[in-house]
């Protein structure tokens, strides 16, 4: 556990840099986190983040990758609705890296 300075505030994060308090998240924070991850946020990146947050709001868990890819396919075109494209956006993985930038807790288990 520790804190990081982000978007002008001290935010609590876990050992892997995931936000401890979901409410600390803002688009500004996400932008800075992405920078730290070496990810340049584009429209497509934000689509992923927005969907993750929306899904998490409803279900208290990140969506299955397949659900995420399908959603992205719907939004950005069918040819982008696959895991490969998600990994292009988030080389650290849609589950781990995208969740981190979206301010979701780190998925645990065999993932």
């Amino acid at each position: 556990m520790g804190t990081i300075d982000m978007a002008g505030k001290k935010l609590e994060v876990d050992e892997d840099g995931y936000l401890t308090n979901l409410d600390d998240w803002s688009r500004e924070v996400a932008g800075e986190m992405a920078k730290g991850e070496g990810v340049e946020m584009t429209e497509a990146h934000w689509e992923v983040v927005d969907f993750l947050r929306q899904y998490y709001d409803e279900y208290k868990i990140a969506p299955m990758i397949r659900i995420l890819t399908k959603e992205i396919g719907k939004k950005l075109g069918k040819e982008k609705g696959n895991t490969k494209y998600l990994y292009e956006l988030y080389p650290g993985g849609p589950a781990k890296q995208a969740c981190k930038i979206a301010g979701l807790p780190k998925p645990t288990g065999c993932v």
Partner: peptide, 30 residues
């Protein structure tokens, strides 16, 4: 952490029932 989630929610990932149901419904449609 994983074990604690099994005790709390029933699985390693911490997928609550509504999420599980909706995931399975999604798969049926898919």
């Amino acid at each position: 952490e994983v074990i604690a989630k099994v005790h709390d929610v029933g699985n390693n990932l911490g997928i609550p029932k509504p999420a599980l149901s909706s995931t399975l419904e999604f798969l049926e449609e898919d």
